Simulated assay, not measured.
Amino acid sequence: MNIRTTPNPVIRRAGRMLRTLNDRHPWNHNVHFHPWILRSLPKGCQRVLDVGCGAGDLLLALSTRAREVDGIDPDQGMVDTAARRCQELPGVRIHRRTLEEHAAERRSTAAGGSYDAITMVASLHHMPLETALRDARDLLRPGGRLLVATLTTPETAFDHAWDVGNALTNPLIGVVKHPRVAQPTAPAEHAMPVRDPAWSFGELRERARPLLPGAVLRRRQGFRSTLLWQKPAG
């Protein structure tokens, strides 16, 4: 039974109660993984690509750790917002393009395989999976790292149990992060595009294996999973 779509009235009522708690103590599921990404950057990291940079939250954090940071996003509103927020950071460059377009542009200028790290937070499930993983692999230098926080859809009994655990712990994490009840805020100037994931954790692991041998995948909080892969040095 999928708790996200079930018609069961008891579960749906419980879901509404949890959403009320979440609204009182909200937390950003994507920003939550920024510390993990910063800790996981390779030593001496100089050049980073953030795929699906959105409003630029991660770009701002990465700019404190790397000399050059490229952010790409296919949504013009997100690119405009990120550009305004990062306009005082000379090492940050932002482009409106997809990962596939960026990879093609880098290959055409013989600049492929030059990034020390590539990050994706809640963007991988917006792209064709194998193409995105292959492009990211090719854009990394030897020894570079791919760091992904992504959504997946529940498929197995364990997936559904993990979803229930996330639903129950989500408001508790919110209380810890933001003990005070949130006050109403103005809506964002440009809403972030949303898409449901099309593949499960198990499918992500199986489809990533031939492209990224040795990748480490973990189920995480906030209905997210992470993938970490280091490109072989030789």
Rank of each mutant, 00 (worst) to 15 (best):
L151S: 14
A117F: 04
A132D: 08
A157Q: 12
D135N: 13
H125C: 01
T150M: 08
P154G: 07
F158Y: 15
L124E: 08
H125E: 01
M120L: 15
V148W: 01
M127Q: 15
R137F: 13
M120K: 12
A117W: 02
Y115E: 01
P142S: 07
H126F: 14
V148G: 00
A149S: 15
E155T: 00
L133G: 10
A117C: 04
A132M: 08
T150H: 08
I118V: 15
T150C: 03
D138S: 10
L133D: 08
T150G: 01
A157H: 10
T153S: 14
S114K: 00
F158P: 00
A136G: 12
L133R: 08
R137V: 00
R141G: 03
G144H: 11
M120Y: 06
A157E: 14
T119R: 02
T150S: 08
R134E: 14
A122S: 15
F158H: 13
T131F: 00
P154R: 05
D138T: 11
D116N: 12
P128C: 07
V148S: 00
A136M: 13
A122W: 04
T150Q: 07
L139M: 14
A149E: 04
L124C: 10
T131Q: 13
S114P: 02
V121C: 14
G144R: 12
E130T: 07
L129W: 13
L124V: 15
T119I: 10
L151D: 06
A122D: 15
T153N: 01
F158I: 14
T156V: 04
S114W: 01
T131N: 02
E130I: 05
A132T: 12
A122C: 09
L129T: 05
T152M: 01
F158K: 10
T153D: 01
D116P: 09
E130W: 03
H125V: 00
S123T: 03
L133S: 11
S114M: 04
G144C: 07
T153E: 11
L147D: 02
T152V: 05
D116F: 10
R145K: 14
T156S: 15
T156Q: 02
M127E: 13
A149K: 05
A117V: 06
M120V: 07
L124Y: 12
S123K: 03
A157V: 10
T152H: 01
M120E: 06
M120N: 09
R141W: 02
F158G: 02
I118A: 11
I118Q: 11
E155I: 00
S123W: 01
T150W: 03
V121R: 10
T131S: 09
L133N: 11
L140A: 05
L133Q: 10
F158N: 05
R137I: 01
L129K: 04
T119L: 06
P142Y: 10
S114R: 06
R141Y: 03
L124A: 12
G143D: 14
T156D: 05
A157L: 15
L139H: 11
G143T: 13
D135C: 14
D138G: 12
L146R: 05
G144D: 06
V121D: 04
L140H: 06
A157T: 13
L140S: 05
